[in-house]
Nucleic acid binder design. Structure first.
Lengths: 220, 220
DNA sequence: ACGTGTGAACTCGTTCACAGCC
DNA sequence: GGCTGTGAACGAGTTCACACGT
């Protein structure tokens, strides 16, 4: 299929076709009226706009379970990310290969960042070490930080931080789960295990993902 | 400090005080006019509404690096989650303790779910195994699934799925990073390492987190 | 006097609907 | 005829502003 219409894409993505067209229009006029969008060209343009065609060297600091999991994660390469280095404070880790990349000691942090022109750092250390690591990353020139440690980081202006809290997604599921259970039996003491499988609770939103559908506070 | 005003809370959270009051009002009228909100009472009411006061037994399937990282993650207990069991398909893992909990073989999955009244399952398996695990979890009575595998899962109505893609957060950082770099030098060939530290790029949004600020497509 | 709770005004993103081009 | 691109209509969610309770 060399070409695709906004209607088809919208159906596949589960959104309105007008919204899709309007969004695409911000990138420029890449469609052809009466025909649709050229798939290859469209993919390229979106990839470019999103930064997928660039090579982003990334360092991961803190090679515990989570750091190792990230180093092994396959999805990075296809999105333009390259794990430039793994860094850990434990001297015993130094030289040990994880996911085929040798772990380097934290002393080398500044040199590694500068040698590789790294602008994105991932923090997977314990909470206590996160701010210090963050400060060193920023000092060495990193301007974007992905933080897995359960701490809010303080950074100077111009540096982006995104915090990933693995338990927040669970929280959201539990919130919905609670609503499912409390649909009829509003007895407050009933544990979540009590009323499982509440028929066909047709949950309108079928999208899987962190955006949308976040449980702000809802009417009782 | 036994009591707090919406103004103080709003300042701390970085939001508008009216929005905060309106949100709270959906839970009921827990404030006192002329005084503010009783901190302890407010915390309890919000905790209850969010499901933090309940005990949510959770199983983690797939005890690789990521599964182990999740099992070790400290933030669960304080939010009402209890890791009821760790499950892996590898017989060699069976009985091995991870984070103090012995890993059980996948054969036991249905029994474990039912014995513990588990309604939330976490999938940290390779992509290839995810759908099969998901089907078994759902068959055993699980109605909420947190999926770390890079696959979109198909589930029956009434089951919630949330997909966590660890590379998407990096993607978002890279997107912003690209905009920082391209602010003046619009030369397309210039790598991301070229123009680091673009002065004081006053990034208005200071919030760290997956909600808000997601890069939909923006005007060129 | 102070701060909540909430109708009313407003803002911004989505959806409609159609003119314009292939 | 079909489908894009986009101004105009719409609506959800946020902010304003003030009446009311303490």
């Amino acid at each position: 299929m060399p070409t695709v219409s906004s209607e088809e894409l919208a159906a596949a993505a589960g959104v309105n076709s007008a919204k899709l067209r309007k969004d695409f229009s911000y990138l420029g006029s890449y469609g052809t009226r009466g025909v649709g969008y050229d798939v290859e060209y469209l993919v390229y343009q979106i990839s470019r706009e999103l930064g997928l065609t660039q090579d982003w060297p990334v360092v991961i600091v803190g090679i515990g379970n989570l750091g190792a999991a990230l180093a092994n994660y396959g999805g990075f390469a296809s999105r333009g990310f390259r794990v430039a280095a793994l860094i850990d404070a434990d001297p015993a880790m130094a030289g040990k290969p994880v996911a085929g990349i040798p772990v380097q000691h934290a002393d080398e942090l500044e040199r590694i960042i500068q040698d590789n022109g790294v602008s994105i750092g991932v923090i997977a250390t314990p909470a206590g070490a996160a701010q210090a690591v963050c400060d060193r990353l920023v000092g060495a020139g990193v301007t974007s930080i992905l933080n897995f440690a359960p701490t809010v980081l303080t950074v100077p202006d111009g540096v982006d931080v995104r915090k990933v809290d693995l338990s927040i997604e669970l929280q959201i599921l539990a919130f919905h789960e609670q609503r499912k259970a409390g649909e009829e039996a509003h007895a407050d003491g009933a544990g979540p295990a009590a009323a499982r499988r509440t028929g066909t609770g047709s949950d309108a939103s079928a999208d899987q993902g962190p955006d949308g559908d976040v449980p702000a506070v809802m009417p009782a």
